[in-house]
């Protein structure tokens, strides 16, 4: 019948299409954390992995469309990279330092320079820590 509940429809179908593109395991990190991101770079026919370190200032989108923004200061100039979380080019994400922040987006860091760009370290345990213990 047309109104068969068992067959996925609409947005459920979209989610189904996105599912195979998603990584099975995404490292737990939050906005404010300082992360090392291993990015696969292709240049002049060669492939190599480059590590980009910076503060995660935003996570947006869901499903396989989720992206995160990493900001760092290179030679006095702010550099931001917006990376697709589930991209096969993102090889690894490691949390170097946890940040304690009260915003979901840290766009205010763009207005700041020098010592003011630091994010307070978060020394508390997080809910996701318990999950990883169980495994």
């Amino acid at each position: 019948m047309a109104d068969d509940r068992s067959t996925p429809k609409g947005q459920d179908l979209l989610r189904m299409v996105e599912a195979p593109d998603m990584k099975e395991k995404v490292p737990a990190f939050r906005v404010g954390d300082t992360v090392d991101v291993d990015v696969l770079i292709k240049e002049s026919g060669r492939e190599r992995v480059q590590t980009f370190r910076g503060t995660c200032i935003a996570r947006k989108g869901d499903g396989n469309r989720e992206t995160f923004t990493v900001r760092r200061i290179v030679q006095g100039e702010g550099v931001e990279r917006v990376l697709p979380l589930h991209s096969p080019h993102i090889r690894d994400i490691r949390v170097v330092r946890r940040g304690r922040v009260r915003r979901a987006k840290l766009h205010y860091l763009r207005q700041r320079t020098g010592r003011a760009t630091r994010v307070a370290e978060d020394l508390r345990t997080r809910p996701e820590d318990k999950e990883s213990e169980g495994k």
Binding site: G10, Q11, L13, L14, V17, E18, D21, L40, G63, N64, R65, P84, H86, S87, P88, H89
Partner: peptide
């Protein structure tokens, strides 16, 4: 028309797609 999303191609690039039933 089901809707739009993105998928990764063989090269790992994001491709904007429309999902059609």
């Amino acid at each position: 028309k089901v809707g739009m999303t993105q998928v990764f191609d063989d090269e790992g690039r994001l491709v904007p797609v429309t999902v059609l039933q």
